[in-house]
């Protein structure tokens, strides 16, 4: 494993911890999109089908369990926790999941490496992950005051995607036959979606003002 990959995974882990910290200790999910969290739960559930069939490493299995467990528990918290659910911005979080899920499923059925159940589900998870942040970005744009933890959560998620691109560049030059178009294109699209957010995140950080996205 190269340094970019490890840094990417650690950033991803940090993003989940920041979100759990906000939900668990502050007992608030204000500004957090349930739609995005449900999409991530679906992304991990469809991508990690191999957790029971293939063993890669202890690291791999543990991380998969962490991402599965955290994404489902975040969804549970927002939907069912007595206190947390009251802070959910239901009226603002109106993005419709199926507008993302259906096109991703159709694309996965037609554009994949192998036509097997596991492979199509895995490809679906890549496409869906690429766009799963959209409901969260829309919600951020509607939220006038973005709190620090929510801003950091989205920043860490974007950083994780960016680091994965460096990881692929590194692997392309160091490993023979490392060419994975579907993974790469979906990953680059996903990272580009954060470009606008990053711009305003750094501007607010530079000027030391509260993060706010233009409507």
């Amino acid at each position: 494993m190269n340094i970019f990959r490890l840094a990417g995974d650690m950033t991803h882990l940090a993003s989940v911890l920041v979100l759990l910290l906000k939900i668990h200790t502050i007992k608030s999910c204000a500004g957090v999109s349930l739609k995005t969290q449900e999409l991530y739960a679906l992304v991990f559930a469809t991508r990690y089908l191999d957790i029971v069939t293939d063993f890669i490493s202890v690291y791999n299995t543990v991380m998969k369990l962490i991402f599965l467990g955290s994404s489902f528990s975040i969804v549970w918290y927002i939907r069912h926790h007595r206190v947390v659910r009251r802070s959910y911005d239901k009226d603002q979080d109106t993005f419709r999941h199926y507008l993302l899920m259906i096109p991703c499923m159709l694309l996965a059925l037609f554009v994949h490496e192998k036509f097997t159940f596991k492979e199509v589900m895995w490809t679906f998870s890549l496409y869906l992950e690429a766009v799963a942040i959209l409901p969260q970005l829309v919600l951020l744009q509607r939220t006038r005051n973005i709190d620090n933890l929510t801003g950091q959560y989205v920043f860490l998620l974007g950083a994780y995607r960016g680091l994965y691109i460096f990881n692929w560049i590194y692997r392309y030059f160091t490993e023979p036959h490392f060419v994975h178009w579907i993974t790469w294109i979906a990953g680059v699209v996903q990272t580009l979606l954060y470009a606008d957010f990053f711009y305003y995140y750094f501007e607010s950080w530079k000027n030391n003002v509260r993060l706010q996205l233009p409507a």
């Binding site: 995974d9 293939d54 890669i56 490496e113 692997r171 490993e175 036959h177 994975h180 993974t183």
Partner: peptide
């Protein structure tokens, strides 16, 4: 392409 290569990523 080889399955085991990308499937080791998360």
């Amino acid at each position: 392409s080889n399955d085991t290569i990308t499937k080791d990523e998360l």
